[in-house]
């Protein structure tokens, strides 16, 4: 992997970390609101179904995770398991793809399903 690609990946991880920090705060605030007000699952789904804002917010959340996690995991694989090159990239990308698929499936279920 070229130095420029590694530098871009680092940047992508930093930017996704900033997005995640914001998303986690909003998500936590939502959780606290929902539990404090005793909202049921049906009441929550009633608010999220058809909500473009919820779809956009959680889609961004999922994408940020799918970008952030594989880059970090690749480092862990490299430094702790001594994986290098293709296997490291393949496993990291596969985990990123799984996060993206499961996350988007959850967003679909909450907003449309």
């Amino acid at each position: 992997m070229s130095a420029a690609t590694q530098a871009r990946l680092w940047y992508a991880q930093r930017v996704s970390a900033m997005v995640l920090a914001l998303c986690v705060l909003v998500h936590l605030a939502t959780l606290i609101y929902a539990t404090r007000h005793g909202l049921t699952a049906a009441a929550i789904l009633g608010r999220t179904r058809g909500s473009g804002l919820a779809a956009l917010f959680y889609a961004i959340f999922v994408i940020a995770c799918a970008v952030h996690v594989p880059i970090g995991l690749a480092k862990v694989f490299e430094e702790w398991l001594r994986w290098r090159g293709r296997i490291m990239a393949a496993v990291s990308l596969a985990i990123g793809a799984v996060i993206l698929f499961l996350g988007m499936r959850a967003v679909y279920a909450v907003v449309i399903g």
Partner: peptide, 12 residues
């Protein structure tokens, strides 16, 4: 900058 970028450089 090319020499110090990347996984053997500052990004590690």
């Amino acid at each position: 900058l090319r020499a110090v970028a990347g996984d053997a450089g500052c990004h590690a």
